[in-house]
Design a binder for these strands. Structure first.
Length: 470
RNA sequence: GGCGACGUACCCAAGUGGUUAAGGGGGAGGUCUGCAAAACCUCUAUUCAGCGGUUCGAAUCCGCUCGUCGCCUCCA
């Protein structure tokens, strides 16, 4: 394994060496469940998924943890607005997130800890901070991390704490703290807000402390990889490092990975500005989850990626091309001698694929290798140059690469009996060269969303989910 | 103001010192096919924001200029 990853901590691509040979502990900042996640959020989750899949494909035992933030200011605000308990709101959006993630074929994380179920872990961490003098209480029962007590602060974000701009933010801050830069690890109880009775008093956890407590709970005080969007570098991850290392006295995360923003119209996709699109919006316009996944993972994670109808349309076509060659390989039957050059072709493709992904998860050249292979396979299919066995080998090879990509096929799905019967009827009509009946059935099936293609290996069908027009 | 990323064809996007500047999409023409679709073939950047410099040689290194985006505050 020659994987190199760009560590935000150093700003450079470094060889990835797991703490424990053969095993990888990886944590990804997950969603705050007060609204549906947008596709920009999913870029970040799917980038982590791609990494997870690649590591696993390379034979590493990965433990992937993704948190669900189910208590925070916005959740409280929105629940109050709706007049429901926060648990009702978060259950709703957690379910939606899981459904969206599944449709996008995000590998289910090994652990998806919820903040509200780990308050004890957070309290224990805060107690450590208090004991070591890195945190202090304020009059309202809140507890703040004292940045002045942590000299390494600002290292991840390369921010000089003394040069931080402090302005309006200071006045608007609702809590009373010693230093404006200090951040809350614990928020004192307030009327109408959820509160936990704990060893450090009543209240609720701050946002940053949640990720520290839960990641270390499942991965230990020091673990391999932590991912998130670039917008989390500061202050979220910076704060995580400070409080985690201050509490344990040990290094926290070895490799920090941050993916660039998804852009729409040249600007960051962000809920705040309303410049967002959600998976449901994309599907409503006729694009499949597979096309969306492709659009989100097809560029290297550190580069900003332009998202929109153009990219979705391109993704839909690309994904169709992959599905088509697999269908053709599956249907292929020929009394031909084995193709002597096929093994070398597959080997070369695999080499290019691995080299590209090893290079900081550079998917573009990896996909280029796949598409070069697809063209070559189509050529050989057309020329009937493969044996039946070759076709099966090539299909299995592509499906193996797809364990990393997750873009090639829809979930296995059958056809309704009625449509199945129409297919058989059409095959019979074709056998007697009854073109009129054949064409009529093809039109009818098309109307039902099933596209027919006639090939030397017989008729082939596939469902049409992608929009023909945007 | 501080920190960082980036500007490659009609669109998306690789390439970061050396033969013909990946790949996907789109477009044009052609082949195959009962038709359709798919597939295949050919073409679609003598040029990499601009200007200087280093070098035998630069899209790739250096400098300047212009432009874009992000972070510094809740944010994937």
């Amino acid at each position: 394994m020659n994987l190199r990853l760009t560590n935000t901590l150093t700003g450079r691509a470094e060889p990835f060496v797991p703490l424990e040979p053969g095993r990888v502990g990886m944590y990804s900042c997950g969603p705050t469940v007060y609204a549906p996640a947008h596709v920009g959020n999913f870029r970040s989750f799917l980038f982590a998924d791609l990494l997870r899949r690649y590591l696993a494909w390379q034979g590493l035992a990965v433990t992937w943890v993704m948190n669900i933030t189910d208590v925070d200011d916005k959740i409280i605000r929105d629940a109050r607005r709706e007049g429901v308990e926060i648990g009702e709101l978060t259950a709703r959006y957690t379910a939606l997130f899981l459904e969206d993630a599944q449709r996008l074929r995000m590998t289910p994380p090994d652990v998806m800890p919820r903040a509200t179920e780990h308050v004890t872990d957070m309290v224990a961490l805060i107690e450590q901070l208090l004991a070591r003098g890195h945190a202090y209480r304020t009059g309202d029962g809140s507890i703040f991390f004292r940045i002045a007590s942590w000299p390494g602060y600002g290292r991840l974000a390369r921010l000089d704490p003394t040069q931080q701009r402090v302005g309006e933010r200071v006045e608007s801050d609702e809590y009373d703290k010693d230093d404006v830069r200090d951040f809350a690890v614990w928020k004192g109880p307030r009327e109408g807000e959820p509160s936990w009775e704990t060893a450090i008093g009543p209240g609720r956890p701050g946002w940053h402390v949640e990720c520290s407590a839960m990641s270390m709970r499942y991965l230990g005080p020091t673990f391999d990889i932590h991912t998130g969007g670039v917008d989390l570098v500061f202050p979220h991850h910076e704060d995580e490092i400070a409080q985690s290392e201050a509490a344990t006295g040990q290094p926290f995360v070895r490799t920090w990975l941050h993916c660039a923003h998804l852009q729409m119209g040249g600007e960051k996709m962000a809920k705040r500005t309303g410049n967002i699109e959600r998976p449901a919006d994309v599907y409503a316009r006729g694009y499949s989850p597979r096309a969306l996944r492709y659009a989100l993972i097809a560029a290297q994670y550190r580069a900003p990626l332009e998202f929109g109808d153009e990219s979705l349309r391109a993704a839909a076509s690309a994904v169709e091309r992959l599905a088509t060659v697999l269908a053709a390989l599956d249907a292929y039957r020929a009394d031909a001698a084995p193709d002597a050059t096929l093994p070398a072709l597959l080997e070369e493709t695999r080499g290019r694929f691995v080299d590209a992904l090893d290079d900081d998860l550079n998917v573009s050249p990896a996909l280029a290798a796949v598409f070069d292979l697809v063209r070559e396979l189509n050529r050989r299919i057309d020329a009937r140059a493969l044996s039946t066995e070759d076709a099966a080998t090539a299909a299995a090879f592509l499906r193996d690469l797809d364990r990393v990509l997750g873009i090639m096929e829809e979930e296995a799905e059958g056809l309704e009996a009625e449509l199945e019967a129409m297919l058989e009827e059409r095959a019979a009509a074709r056998a007697r060269r009854d073109w009129a009946t054949s064409d009529r059935l093809r039109d009818e099936l098309a109307g039902r969303g099933v596209l027919i293609e006639d090939t030397r290996d017989g008729q082939r069908w596939r469902r049409v989910v992608e929009a023909q027009r945007g």
